[in-house]
């Protein structure tokens, strides 16, 4: 039952990306790229890492 709690991490990408009011800004820019763009690209990496954590934390014996 405890293992299931890890799945809650997967809610974060939805909150982070589906509310443009959070990130619809030009500043702070990164290498000249407006915040709007690099923020969403950063979420790609964060989502990948979160999934990696959940994959490992919820691994079953039969997952080869």
């Amino acid at each position: 039952m405890k293992k299931r709690a890890w799945y809650a991490l997967l809610v974060l990408p939805f909150i982070g990306t589906l509310f443009p009011q959070i990130y619809n800004r030009a500043e702070p820019a990164l290498f000249g790229i407006p915040f709007f763009y690099w923020y969403q690209l950063a979420w790609v990496i964060v989502t990948s890492l979160l999934l990696g954590i959940v994959v490992i934390a919820t691994r079953r014996r039969d997952d080869v």
Partner: peptide, 20 residues
């Protein structure tokens, strides 16, 4: 312009969905 960038959040949240 910016609206076309929807493909990025789309291709991000598709993976938690796919995973489950």
């Amino acid at each position: 312009g910016a609206l076309g960038f929807f493909a990025v959040p789309y291709a991000t949240i598709a993976y938690p969905i796919a995973f489950v």
